[in-house]
Write a protein that binds this DNA or RNA. Sequence first.
DNA 1: ATTGAAAATGAATATTATTATCATTAGAGA
DNA 2: TCTCTAATGATAATAATATTCATTTTCAAT
Lengths: 149, 149
Amino acid sequence: MNPANKMEQLSAYMSGKGLKSTSQRDYIADTFFRTNTHISLEELLGKVRRKHKGIGYATVYRTMKLLSESGLALSRQFGDGQTRYENLPADGHHDHIICIKCSKIAEFHNPKIEALQSEAAKKLGYTVVNHKMELYGYCADCAVKDREA
Amino acid sequence: MNPANKMEQLSAYMSGKGLKSTSQRDYIADTFFRTNTHISLEELLGKVRRKHKGIGYATVYRTMKLLSESGLALSRQFGDGQTRYENLPADGHHDHIICIKCSKIAEFHNPKIEALQSEAAKKLGYTVVNHKMELYGYCADCAVKDREA
DNA sequence: ATTGAAAATGAATATTATTATCATTAGAGA
DNA sequence: TCTCTAATGATAATAATATTCATTTTCAAT
Ligand SMILES: [Mn+2]
Ligand SMILES: [Mn+2]
Ligand SMILES: [Zn+2]
Ligand SMILES: [Zn+2]
């Protein structure tokens, strides 16, 4: 789904809720839809202010919360104390592996793991609705540097 | 390992670092060692103040940080904004499944999943050092209530 | 095009968990 | 017992996020 489609989706979601479209909201959403990183609120605010310097902190917070609720953005917590957002992946959900030295993030998806998760949950009487799985370790670059040091 | 053993371990760790034993610290640690839940700082402070009402917030924070560093406590973040601590499980590490209705927590360990995690990471050039895996869903009780409603 | 109710904005303030500061107290080796 | 150093607890500081509120903007109805 391209940014324009997403703007339409958002528009539909908003009119369904009686929300109004504004230039700030549109610009923040569009800017976000064009990112392909795990962006923090602060980074997004910076990006957005390059063009619209009047935009406030609160509006970025509010807009990303809205995108999150509407299912057009995913919020992620990687343990550095800041919430990050990413666009919905085209190929379904994925999990993350994060380098504990340089913070580089790689993504993966493993249906076998998820089947085993459901199975483990079932044994305990639970039904899984969603999950959070993050691996922490060294990326290839940082592992090399470690060996050299 | 029982509470008394843990107190010894802690004592050893502290003397190794030139730290002093105090009645507050000892009581907080001992109280924690006797819990078998995922306890928040606030809950622990409450417990501890039942006997020693003078104990300050900061001392509980500092003590739990110390236990965490010494490897005698595990800190957990389950997404409710509060850090929780649990005792080291006797049978190695485990992951969690949390009911999104009543917050009940179950624990599980699945070596097969962890092997697959390492494998997935390896494909991306990463080496896994640790991981965080939480499943969210409905416990048996809450699933039943849902069906009845 | 005008109007008016409802929603959005941005600045400022509040909240919440956690950490740091600092004057005072207490532990423990000499 | 002295004395040095760490620990304590009250309080203030931080940092991310949420809320408040006066003002502005949107948009459906006129
Ligand atoms: Mn991602
Ligand atoms: Mn546990
Ligand atoms: Zn790296
Ligand atoms: Zn439940």
